[in-house]
Structure formats: C-alpha cells, structure tokens
Amino acid sequence: MLRSIAARIAQALGLILAVVALNFLLIHITPGDPATVIVGESGAGDPELLEEIRAQYGLDRPVIVQLASYVGRVATGDLGESYFFNQSVSSLIANRLWPTVLLVATALTFAVVAGTLVGVFTARRPESPLSHSATVLALVGFSMPVFWTGIMLVILFASVWNLLPVQGWHDVSYTPGVLGNIADVAEHLVLPALTLGLIYLAQYSRLSRASMLEVLESDYVRTARAKGLSESSVVYKHALRNAIIPVVTVIGLQFGALLSGALLVETVFNWPGLGRLAFDSILRRDTSVLLGVLLVSSVMVIAANLLTDLLYTVIDPRIRLRERSRV
C-alpha cells in the first residue's frame, strides 16, 4: 500500500513538472508583450525603455532559457513578482487561496451530500411522482450555465427579495470579532456556493440514482433483506457504501471543472479568490501571477485525484486486498 502511494506521488510530481512547462510555453506563445503592460501606456512608445524592461525581467532571453530559469525558481518555491501588483506572486496567491478553497469545499459538500440523498430517495421510489420531478429538476440544473445561474440568483435575491449580499465576501459594516466575521462570510458565501453547487448536485443525483438502482438489485442486498434487516439499514449501511464509489470517482475527475466554474462564479459575485485573480491577470497580461494561479490550480487537481484514489481503499476494503495481492 505504501509502495503504491509513493509511486502515485512520484507520478504526480512528474505531472506537475510537465504542467509547469506546458503552461509557461502556452502563455509565452500567445500574442502580447508584458513589457508594454509593465511600463504602461505612457511609456509604451519608448523603444529604449521597453528594451530596458525586457532586460530587467529577462524577457529578452530565448524562451527555453526563460523556461529553465522559471522551473528552477518554482522548484525553490519562488513564483516570481507581479508586474501589476508589484508584490510577490506567492503572497498574492496565499491571500486569495482561502476564499477559493472555502467556496469550492462548500459547493462540493453541498452538491455531494444533497445530490446523493436525492439520488438515494429517487432510487428507492423510482416510479413515484417525486422521483420523476427530481429527475426533471436535475436535468434542468445540469443544463443551466453556471454564470447564467449566478446572474439569475443575483436578480432574485438582490433585486426582487433583497435578502442576501451579492458581492465580495465581507460587508463594510459587519460586526467585529470572530463570530461576526464568520457570520458575515457565511452570508456572502450562500449565493456563490449555491450557484457553483447546483450544476454538480444535478450530476451527482443522477449518478447516485443510477448506481443505487444497480446496487439494490445485487445478491448481497437481497440477502440482507432476507435476514430481516430494516430497510434503512440495508440502504444506508450496505447499499450506499458501494453505490457511492462512482460518485467519488466523478468528484476526482471533475475537480478541475469545479475550479473552472469557480472562476466564473467569482467573477459574477466579485468573490476575492484565485479565479478572480486569474481573470484580472489575463486582462492585465500579468503572466507571473497567471502562471502561479495555474500551478496552484494544477496541484489542487492532482492532489484531489490522489485523494480520490486513497478514498477508494476506505470505502471499499476489497481494493485494499487487491493492492496487497499485487505487492
């Protein structure tokens, strides 16, 4: 088991190195000159100043040399300096990482828990009107673009009902102190997390429903019922543990899409996370910040997939037995 984990970590490190190189090359072959962004519009017409800036930031060197230098700095934890914010990329990302983690974790938890419960309910009563209604709503939720959902929620809760804040993650007049801070952030978090979670709730409900329907027809479930166990024990203790494995698989595979959706949600709600930082960096051609955000996002996706592999062994003990048999 430990040997398998070590091998996967080694593969993850190699993949991160490939991602760093690919991101760097893709950004540097796109049109545009960061030097013109650094000097601003007033100095962009001065060729000597532009050459001086390129030499200062190493932009006049060949791309391969710049790539080797960047990989070396990343290996030491140095992500460079922001051209626009005039501070280290590491500090910028550190300040924006927690809001994104909070948003993604809340949306994912909501989608998985609610989607799984809806899927289990509809699988137990597949022909009931509520089951058909849940199926239709899931398809509608899956079809809605995440930015459109966010805009509709803004109109509904800010313009029509005026119940929840729709921008930022702090109010100017929030109550000082730990509890006041938590309450204010939670209030601002409701709409972004709901927007991001709705589409994945629809997917997980459909997936858990299909998986539960298959598991409920298994021999061991019929055996459990024949032993006289209660229906809730059969469903939640025996069937759900196996039915949730496909859901865990999809979580790992879709974590990258979840982060991409977070970029749109953070833009709609002006949420101060990595997605908003990436959006601003693209507009300002701040390549150092954009590379840093892409690197951190890639590490998060790779770590999520590695964690998914480890969760398999917790959910299904048979996977642990197979791992031991290979050693």
Rank of each mutant, 00 (worst) to 15 (best):
220 Y>H: 13
230 S>T: 09
310 L>W: 05
106 T>P: 05
244 I>W: 01
58 G>C: 03
213 L>K: 04
323 E>V: 13
11 Q>H: 09
7 A>W: 11
195 T>V: 01
204 Y>H: 04
10 A>S: 09
102 L>A: 12
59 L>V: 04
214 E>T: 00
41 E>N: 14
78 D>R: 11
113 V>D: 05
24 F>M: 06
281 S>D: 06
251 I>H: 00
116 T>R: 03
2 L>M: 14
244 I>Y: 00
259 L>R: 10
158 A>D: 14
16 I>M: 15
315 I>H: 03
219 D>R: 12
243 A>G: 04
233 S>W: 12
59 L>W: 15
149 T>H: 05
165 P>F: 00
97 L>Y: 10
3 R>I: 13
26 L>S: 11
228 G>F: 09
94 A>V: 15
168 G>V: 07
129 P>I: 05
283 L>I: 14
128 S>L: 07
130 L>R: 11
116 T>D: 04
93 I>D: 01
246 P>D: 03
114 A>W: 09
56 Q>Y: 13
320 R>K: 12
141 G>V: 07
196 L>N: 05
32 G>C: 10
243 A>K: 03
187 E>M: 10
199 I>M: 13
37 V>M: 15
127 E>F: 06
245 I>W: 01
284 R>W: 06
170 H>Q: 13
104 V>G: 03
281 S>N: 03
185 V>M: 02
235 V>C: 01
308 T>R: 05
138 A>R: 00
129 P>H: 09
20 V>H: 03
304 A>Q: 01
240 L>A: 11
27 I>E: 08
13 L>I: 11
48 E>Q: 14
140 V>F: 14
303 A>L: 14
109 T>G: 13
4 S>K: 09
95 N>K: 15
29 I>P: 03
269 F>R: 04
268 V>M: 04
63 V>T: 09
76 T>S: 15
189 L>M: 11
10 A>L: 13
261 G>N: 06
107 A>W: 00
160 V>W: 12
261 G>C: 01
289 V>F: 14
234 V>P: 04
189 L>C: 07
142 F>P: 00
312 Y>P: 09
199 I>C: 08
228 G>C: 01
67 L>D: 11
218 S>F: 03
234 V>H: 07
256 G>E: 08
179 L>V: 12
251 I>K: 05
200 Y>N: 14
317 P>A: 04
160 V>L: 13
264 L>W: 00
289 V>H: 10
119 G>P: 02
111 A>R: 04
319 I>L: 03
27 I>M: 10
296 V>D: 05
74 V>C: 10
292 G>Y: 03
216 L>H: 01
181 N>E: 14
163 L>E: 06
277 L>P: 04
157 F>R: 12
133 S>P: 00
195 T>A: 02
303 A>Q: 06
128 S>Y: 03
285 R>N: 13
234 V>L: 05
63 V>R: 07
50 L>F: 04
126 P>Q: 09
77 G>M: 13
218 S>N: 08
211 S>W: 04
326 R>M: 10
170 H>Y: 15
88 S>D: 07
